[in-house]
Design a protein around this nucleic acid. Structure first.
Lengths: 127, 127
DNA sequence: CTGAATCCGCGGGGATACTG
DNA sequence: CAGTATCCCCGCGGATTCAG
């Protein structure tokens, strides 16, 4: 991911720009609340759709499927359908997914670490 | 941050629930595209409003101010106003902000590392 | 230059119903 | 149970304007 766009206009860097725009796309996919919460919820284990729905507080049916599709498309989660009745679908993080989860864990850790800090900052600001 | 809500109804855990809901709030604030891109753009340095606007590709005037206010409120960025004319405002990451940035760096690293992986996963899925 | 405020369109996202 | 489709509304977010 490149944040500065100094060398944007050079045609010989077309492939670089392509990779960069792809990176931005992936970043936009991944840097959203529900995606990260789902990844965090999956953890090391395997969860069914309905279990995820319970685990990820406040997520709607629609948002859950939507984000699961997206994560599956990007190869971050593995979707395993058991051809039973009633159907049973299990979701598991792939290797890239687990790698990302490690960083999500860090964000969660960060959140807890600075909870108090942030709360007082808010109080100060709101005054 | 607690992902499971097993012990939600016990009244003696009111403070835990409060901290948890606060954590979720912070997580929702922080886990969004623009906030993370702004944090990443600020890096170790100091940038003016207009510089940030250039640095963070595609961000609108409104989104930038909005997210900067939010980050300032949570104590992640420091806002320094120079009483000159025309006005000059500089934004810098605070210590908590820099700590978070470290994890954002990891996400960026992750993105680049799995770029190819993800691209092929997409191709496979779209077929 | 920075930023608040207003207007407004479009799409995110909830609720619901229906298939397999 | 899991997933898709439809409806529909609210609010995100862009464009623009005005102020300091």
């Amino acid at each position: 991911m490149v944040t500065k766009q100094v060398r944007d206009e050079l045609p010989e860097n077309a492939d670089l720009r392509r990779a960069d725009s792809l990176a931005r796309e992936i970043f936009s996919d991944v840097a959203n609340k529900w995606a990260l919460l789902i990844i965090e919820a999956l953890g090391e284990g395997t969860l069914r759709f309905s279990e995820l729905r319970n685990e990820v507080e406040g997520v709607s049916h629609k948002m859950l499927t939507q984000n699961l599709r997206m994560l599956e498309r990007n190869g971050l989660v593995d979707r395993k359908v058991h051809p039973t009745v009633p159907p049973k679908v299990e979701y598991t993080l792939t290797e890239p997914g687990r790698a990302l989860r490690a960083t999500v864990d860090l964000i969660c850790g960060w959140t807890n670490q600075y909870l108090g800090h942030i709360e007082t900052a808010r109080d100060r600001f709101d005054a």
